[in-house]
Amino acid sequence: MHCDYFSAGRCRSCRLMGVPYHRQLADKQVMAAQALRPVAPEVRWADPFASAESGYRNKAKWVVGGDRRNPTIGILDERREGIDLRRCGICEPSLIEAFPALVDFIARIGLVPYDVNRRIGDIKYLIVTTSPQGQLLVRFVLRSLDRLDDIRRGLPALRSALPQLAVASVNLHPEHKAVLEGDREILLTEESSLSIRLGDVSLYLGPQGFFQTNTAVAAGLYRQAADWATQTTPTSVLDLYCGIGGFALHCAPPSARTVHGVEISADAVSGARRSAATRPDPGRFTFDADDAVARRLDADLVIVNPPRRGLGATVADWIDTGAARHLIYSSCNPATLAADLARMPSLRAIEARLFDMFPQTAHMEVAVLLERR
């Protein structure tokens, strides 16, 4: 893949840009295998699941820079000034098509980009997600709610320019710190979630929900986990860090009479419950936003998809001493994955596969199937 921004030195986020893709994939496979070898020396590796080299990213998390008349969306340079990346080649085409109208809207409303150095301005970030069907979820991350009414008044014109806009919200982020969003979300549209259809499963992503940023590879990851779930024939499934229910809703073989998901985000759990209601057998799915519930449940199969920091000692020990016959662990960090596997000696890794969620970068997703010894 060629990127003009990278070649010009304007953006170096994709650190593997210019490295042939087959080599990127091979190198990641080696790194993943090396990370797991000390704790899983006999694991069988399936062929890596490759991605499209470009146009794969379904979510853009842009800093809004520039000035009131000429806002930019992209990243900040070393002087904390905006670099416009609206033609970024790793973004899905439906995002690229939407960016000009969104930038025009920001300028037309007169939202002042947040100046990091001076700590003044209205809008900090623009977060846009696209579904496989091309619909959009747009979030305006604002420093205050002073311009909320202006955005509301201008929204009909934006929806006229972007008829694919399904969900819009304002996120309030008043603090000056290096996090992307605040806790408070204000919905601007009647629809509260973006419908993401993968095969026969419909997932519902709210503004503060989580979904993998590479839709095609996420679908492959879910299929792999579903195949493993079918092989293990569980009567019960427990999905920890379930998000909007991607694993739970895919990993429900006929043998599983109960499928339970646990996630701390109430917004994500609401989406998971909505998805479950569309399934032919909705009664066997339950979801909770209370992580303490998991400790009171036994399951034949446990599925985990934790953040980069991994499970940690407490959760790993609970799983290690629990009753689950099998564990499916999906990780975006091979180092913390290996550390967690070392904490669970009663479980043996038998199969693993690399999923290339992030081409042009060194990041990767690794899924592992483990069985109790």
Rank of each mutant, 00 (worst) to 15 (best):
I109W: 11
V63F: 07
W62D: 13
L95N: 01
A60V: 15
V112T: 07
G110H: 12
R87C: 06
D84R: 08
I106P: 00
E78W: 02
K61Q: 14
Y114M: 15
K61S: 06
G66P: 01
I120N: 10
L126D: 00
R69Y: 06
N70T: 09
D84C: 11
E81C: 06
I75Q: 02
V103S: 01
D122G: 11
I96K: 15
C91K: 10
W62A: 06
E97Y: 14
C91I: 09
L126Y: 00
L111M: 12
V103E: 04
P100K: 12
I83E: 14
D77H: 01
G82C: 02
L102P: 14
G65E: 14
I75T: 04
T72C: 11
I109Q: 05
A101P: 00
N117A: 14
R87I: 05
L102K: 07
R87Q: 15
P71D: 06
I90C: 01
L95F: 07
D67A: 04
A60Y: 15
L111D: 09
V63Q: 01
L76F: 10
E78S: 02
R68G: 11
G121L: 00
P100G: 01
D67V: 14
P71F: 14
D122K: 10
D84E: 03
G89W: 02
A98Y: 07
R108W: 15
G82M: 02
L111R: 11
A60I: 08
I73R: 07
R69E: 01
D122W: 09
N70C: 12
L85F: 00
R108Q: 14
P93R: 04
I83Y: 13
L76C: 15
